[in-house]
Amino acid sequence: MPDSLFIAFWNVENLFDVESADRSEKLRGILGKDLSGWDDDVLESKLRQLSRVICSMNSGAGPDILGVCEVENRNVLIRLTGMIAAEGGRNYHVVHADTSDNRGIDVAFLYDPAVASTSPDKVFQHWVVKRYATRELFQVNFELDGQTVVLVGNHWPSRTSGQYESEPFRITAGETLSYWIERIRQELGNHVAIVVTGDFNDEPFNRSITEYALSTSDRRQVMNGRNPYLLNLMWPLLGSGAGTHLYNGRWNMLDQIMVSQGIVNGKSGWSVHGEARIEGMDMMSRPNRAGPRRFGLKPGERDLAGFSDHYPVSVTLRR
């Protein structure tokens, strides 16, 4: 029976299948020439770079459970798990949400079956209702020696059209998340262990996170609150000036991990050990240049020695 659980999340940046893969005409039109020359060799390079970072986590043991976003389909995830195993890492299983996103990118979890298990009846996709399709919230109930740990993966609507112009979409996602946290607690008990991970495209202090997802830095509010508050574990890192994504020379803490009341008070059987971490910074950074080294997507911007435009984040739970 493991006494700890290492959970990580990573926006792996445009992990698309090869250019010749089967796609709808609509999706081909949206992607345009972005995938020109995205052949098997380029994809293999991308997977190898991702695998290096994943295998380096957890002191070289790799995560027990890893959430990912910006993946096109199950095929690229199977290839990623094969690469990880070939590089000496764990033999992960895949649980994947085939979402209705306009660009065809999904949310998924990789998990070590020696540590955790799940089944199709414990996997749920929760729609975020907006005019233009976006990624659903992806809930997976994992079982660890008879104890349930619920993971909710997120990839909220981007800021592409402007931070404030697009904010209502993330507010909608935040309200949707809070609704489902409350429903999970009703179904599985107020003290069930829930870990919310993702790329929220907002920061811990933005309204979508604080007022609608009910995520806070105040442990007392989580423990005493009648509402389904979440403890946002990124505040200490945010206070240090760190971030997971660099945009126009400014750090953003877009990738976050939040935990439920049952983890904060320990009544779920799990508690947070230490603090949340940003992973892969040494490996993914270039000398004298801030930010993670991107792999890129479009033909003119690809860097086969790159990784992603986001750093991964992680946390350890202890029984």
Results as ranks from 00 to 15, higher is better:
255 D>M: 05
187 E>P: 00
310 H>T: 04
128 V>I: 15
237 L>C: 10
230 L>W: 05
7 I>T: 02
56 S>C: 13
117 S>G: 14
133 A>N: 10
270 W>Q: 05
148 T>H: 13
9 F>K: 09
25 E>P: 05
303 D>N: 14
34 D>A: 15
78 I>L: 14
131 R>G: 06
107 V>A: 02
204 P>W: 02
174 G>S: 00
24 S>G: 15
176 T>V: 11
308 S>E: 06
149 V>Y: 04
59 S>N: 15
96 H>A: 00
244 T>C: 04
135 R>H: 08
186 Q>R: 06
261 Q>M: 10
219 R>Q: 13
8 A>C: 10
53 V>Y: 14
264 V>R: 03
281 M>D: 04
241 G>R: 02
159 R>Y: 13
240 S>Q: 14
62 G>D: 04
313 V>T: 04
318 R>N: 10
120 P>T: 05
269 G>L: 04
46 K>V: 08
300 G>W: 08
236 P>M: 05
48 R>N: 11
236 P>I: 04
308 S>K: 08
111 Y>G: 00
111 Y>R: 01
180 W>F: 13
126 H>N: 11
316 T>N: 10
125 Q>H: 09
244 T>Q: 02
64 D>M: 08
151 L>T: 06
202 D>Q: 06
130 K>C: 11
190 N>I: 03
147 Q>P: 00
313 V>W: 09
129 V>H: 14
247 Y>Q: 03
22 D>Y: 14
246 L>P: 00
293 R>A: 05
252 N>M: 00
51 S>T: 12
313 V>C: 02
21 A>H: 11
70 E>S: 13
214 L>Q: 01
117 S>F: 03
118 T>S: 12
145 D>P: 07
181 I>H: 04
154 N>I: 01
